[in-house]
Amino acid sequence: MSLGVPMQCPDRGGPAGGAPPAGLPDGFSSRLDALLAAYRMAGRGVGRAARRGAAGNPALAVEAVGFHPCGPGRLGCMVTPWFLEAVLLPDDPFLWAEARDGDPLPLELPSGRHRFTAARMGLLGTLAAIPLASDMALFLDAEDARHAARLALDTLSGRPAQAPSGCPVLAGPWP
Rank of each mutant, 00 (worst) to 15 (best):
C167R: 06
L95Q: 07
P168M: 08
N57V: 02
A55L: 13
G17A: 07
P10C: 08
A16K: 11
M41N: 11
P175H: 05
A163K: 05
W82Y: 11
Q162M: 14
V169T: 15
L84M: 08
A142F: 07
L170A: 13
P175I: 01
G76E: 10
A54L: 06
L109D: 05
G56I: 03
A129S: 14
F94P: 02
E143W: 13
V46I: 00
L127W: 03
P81F: 00
L88A: 08
E85T: 05
R159Q: 13
R74T: 10
A86H: 05
D154V: 00
P25A: 13
L170T: 03
P93R: 11
C167M: 00
S30L: 12
W96S: 05
A64N: 12
A37D: 13
G43Y: 04
G17H: 07
A142R: 14
A133F: 09
G4H: 06
L89I: 08
D92F: 03
P173R: 15
L107V: 07
R44P: 00
P69E: 11
H68K: 04
F28I: 12
G14F: 02
G45E: 06
A145P: 02
G17N: 05
G4M: 07
P131W: 13
D144W: 11
A16V: 12
L36D: 05
L84V: 04
A99V: 05
A148F: 09
G158C: 06
